[in-house]
Design a binder for these strands. Sequence first.
RNA 1: GUGGAUGUAGUUCAAUGGCAGAGCACCGGAUUGUGGUUCCGGGCGUUGGGGGUUCGACUCCCCUCAUCCACCCCA
Length: 415
Amino acid sequence: MEYNIPRGTYDILPEASPARQALYARFLRLAEAFGYHEITTPVFEQAALFERSSGESSDVVQKEMYRFNDRKGRVFALRPEGTAPVVRSYLENRLDLKGENKLCYWGPMFRYDRPQAGRYRQFYQYGIEFIGSDHPYWDAEVISFLWVFFQSLGLKELRLELNSVGCPDCAATYETALRDYYRPHLDQLCPDCLKRFELKPRRLLDCKVPSCKAFAKDAPSQLDYLDQSCAEHFEQVKAFLNLMNVPFTINPGIVRGLDYYTNTAFELIYEGIGAQNSLAGGGRYNGLIEQMGGKSTPAIGFAGGIERLLLALEAEGISLADSPGPDLYVIAMGVEARDFIVHLINELRAGGISVVYDPEKTSFKAQLKAANSSRARFAAIIGEDELAAGQVMLKNLETGQQQAVKADALLQFLG
RNA sequence: GUGGAUGUAGUUCAAUGGCAGAGCACCGGAUUGUGGUUCCGGGCGUUGGGGGUUCGACUCCCCUCAUCCACCCCA
């Protein structure tokens, strides 16, 4: 083989396609039920869109973005996430004026990262964005969308974790407090945590090194550093979630990776698919739209990973769709029978019947065997007798029963 | 980006440095018009790729590519 697939990518083979299609259909159906409409943006955008929105210091921008120049030197990037493009489109197309503020999407994202179970360089995400209100009801509705979606798929081992990272003011005072707490212990932290201390002090809390974990226990919590309105907002989100019967656990360690998040942050955790156990995550981003040049507009959304969801479904033995066999397998004995049925096959197909026929299989046995393994519902057998009578012998491959059917009545019979 | 494991037929896996094999799957056949079971037969490998050591390399060494696991990060 001279060529092979790029690292961290994968082919969606025919056998895997039905499950994904089913997932997509279910997502869209639920999105519609919640009043969301699908939006599809390009897979590449100006690199600056992501650099500014996600934050220059974020890992996504620093080392995971596929950046390239086009022939005129413009700098683009394969999208590493879906929110910024959706917001860009929302502003550019003035969807605010059309009241189009519940948007959902589905498509490939790209991050140059080391591949691992549940982590790819081209991966697929689905998500929703609610734009235009800071009311806590919408936080709860977005979260409940996620919850209902997973419940409807039948997944059991789910954990919804909730946190509030506050507004930029709360976040700043909290990070100061956090640094004050850790500063005396800097010499006892792991090297990674020393970097975290400088760049992302919140990440100190979920370090997995035992010695660091000990400090995390007594570290200050963001929840104690929320100002009046942020605290109230959080309380109301929780209250709405309770009213919606969405179970959640508070985890002050939930940190969103991208800079634009404010207040509500949440993550859906699934144990049992490896280290990459976050099936979906999201939160509020009240500052993003203004930062991107729109007028100050609050918003909230989430994104989930298809690959991880499929892994979770597999882990629980849930199959959404198996590829069905064709409706009909045509068995023709001899060239005259063949010439008789080739046109009939097209008519049936045009009528929406899926038909399999293989002219290279000539022996009766081979054809019937193939009919069986194709999992077709029926086999249509045409030999000399049938040809003379202008009919086919229609055999139910499950029961073995067969009956003669007029050729021109076949479409009606099968349809 | 860091560390570790692995790479042999379509697939799951064997093979002390000495002729590359098995199950499953696939294809064909068992007196030419009735499938799934059974029986018989069949093909397949540049042992991921490249280089080195050796009389001889799937086996040992180096490089490379890929996958998996963990870190990191996240969906």
